[in-house]
Simulated scan of single mutants.
Amino acid sequence: MERLKRTALFHLYKEYGAKTIDFGGWEMPVQFTSIKEEHSAVRERAGLFDVSHMGEIVVKGDDSEKFLQKMVTNDVSRLKSGRAMYTAMCYENGGTVDDLLIYKLDEKEYLLVVNAANTESDFQWLKGHLEGDVMVENESEHWGQLAIQGPLAEKVLQKLVDIDLSKLKAFTFQTNVDIQGSKALVSRTGYTGEDGFEIYCRASDSPDIWNHLLEAGKEEKVLPCGLGARDTLRFEACLPLYGQELSADITPIEAGIGFVVKLHKDEFIGKEALNIQKERGTQRKIVGLEMIDRGIPRNGYPVFSDDQPIGYITSGTQSPTLKKNIGLALLKSEFAYLGSEVQVEIRQQKLAAKVVETPFYKRSK
C-alpha cells in the first residue's frame, strides 16, 4: 500500500489534536477540535488552514499567455501582474479537467494553483499541449500554503507582515512579503465565503508561519481548522468542489460557474461544446435544495420527481450556520426552477425537498 503524502506541517498536527484522513493521497487533518467549532470560528472570527497539499504549477516563457489562453476558459489577457483569476480547464467535450487559480507573477510567468488530487494529471495535460516558447514546471513539493480566513483574518495577519493589507484587494497578491523573517506570496482570494488570505511560502517555512499566526491570533481566538470545516464553509457559499460539483462529466456551465467561460476570445479547448451549451442551454444544472422532510442529503443520493430519477446530490450536510439540511444537486433543467418540489432518497426513503436560491450563505460586507 502506497504511503500517504504529508505536508511540512504534519509533525505539528498532533500538538493541536488533529484527526487525520486520506484526502486525495494526502494524510490531512479533517478536524482539530470539531467541525462545527472550527466552522463557527471562521464565520465569526478567523481560522487557519494548512492547504499545502494543493498543487503549484509554474508556466513561463514568451508564449505563456497565448498558451494559457488556449488551455483555460477565462480571459488571461485581462490579467495584470499582481492579480489573480479563477478559471477552469476543459476537455474538448466541455467536461472539466480542473478548476484553478492563475496568479500573474510578471509578463511572462504565471503560477497555477490546482486541486491536490489533480496536480499530476493537470501537469501532464498542460505538458501534452505545449506550443511555442513555454515551460511548465510542477513546483508543488517546494511550496507550503496556509489560508487564514474570517472577518478578523486581516487584523491577525497584519500583526506579522510588512505591508498594508487593507490595500490588498480581492484577487490581488503581493510577492516577497516578510512574515517574521520568512518571505511569502500573500493573496486575498479564499474558499470559505469569508474574507481571507493565502500565504504561499517555502514548504520548510510553513511550520514557523503557522505558529506565528496562531500566536498572533490568540486574542482573537483563531483556531486551527481541518478539511471538514473547509468543506462545510465552501458548501454554504456554494463554491464548487472538484469531483462533486465539477468533473470530467460536468461542465463549468452546468456547475454554475459559466462566468469563467469567455466565449469572445480565440479558440480554447472545449470552446465549441461550451458555446453550444451557452446558446441552447444545458440539459442539467446545479441547484440548491432545502429539505422539507427530516433528513440530510449526501453526495451521490438520487433525486426524484414523482418516482422519475432526475439527478443526484453533489454535496449536502446540515448547515452549521443556517441550521438547515441543505444540498447541491445536479438536476435535469426542467426541474431546476425555484420552488420546484423533488424527493431525495435517503436510506431507502424518498424525502421531500425544494429548490431554493443560492448561495445559501453570503457574508455581509
Rank of each mutant, 00 (worst) to 15 (best):
D178A: 11
L146T: 13
S187R: 08
G150H: 08
A184T: 10
N118V: 03
V134K: 06
L112M: 14
D99S: 06
S182G: 00
Q180E: 15
G94F: 04
L126I: 06
L130V: 15
Y110A: 04
E139C: 11
P151H: 08
Y91M: 07
L100C: 09
T96A: 05
V134P: 05
G95V: 02
K159I: 09
H129L: 08
Y110D: 04
N93S: 12
K108G: 09
Y91P: 04
S182M: 08
I148T: 12
N115F: 05
G150E: 09
A117K: 02
M135T: 15
C90R: 06
Y191F: 15
L100E: 12
E109T: 14
D162S: 07
L185C: 11
K183W: 03
Q124A: 12
L185D: 10
Y103E: 02
I163M: 04
Q124Y: 12
V136R: 04
I179C: 01
L112R: 08
G95W: 01
G181T: 03
V97Q: 07
F123T: 06
Y191N: 07
D195W: 08
F123D: 02
E141S: 14
E107C: 02
S121P: 03
S166A: 05
L130M: 13
T119S: 11
I179F: 01
L100M: 15
Q158K: 09
V177T: 02
L111S: 00
G128W: 03
E109G: 04
P151W: 06
K169M: 08
G128K: 12
G132I: 09
L101N: 07
E120S: 14
L101D: 06
E131I: 13
G144H: 00
N118Q: 15
A170S: 12
D162Y: 03
W143E: 07
A147N: 08
G132K: 10
F173S: 04
Y103K: 01
T192S: 15
V113H: 10
G190C: 03
E109V: 03
G132C: 09
E154Q: 15
L101V: 10
E154M: 13
L185P: 06
Y191H: 13
I179L: 09
K108C: 02
C90A: 13
G190I: 01
K169G: 05
C90G: 08
C90K: 07
E154F: 01
L130F: 04
I102T: 07
F171E: 11
E141R: 13
Y91V: 05
G132S: 11
D99V: 04
A170E: 12
W143R: 15
Q180I: 05
E137M: 09
Q158F: 02
D195L: 13
F173Q: 04
I163H: 00
Q180F: 03
I102K: 05
K169I: 06
K127T: 12
D162T: 06
E194R: 09
D164V: 00
H129N: 15
E194Y: 06
A153T: 11
A116W: 00
I148C: 10
H129S: 11
A117S: 12
S140W: 02
K155R: 15
W125D: 02
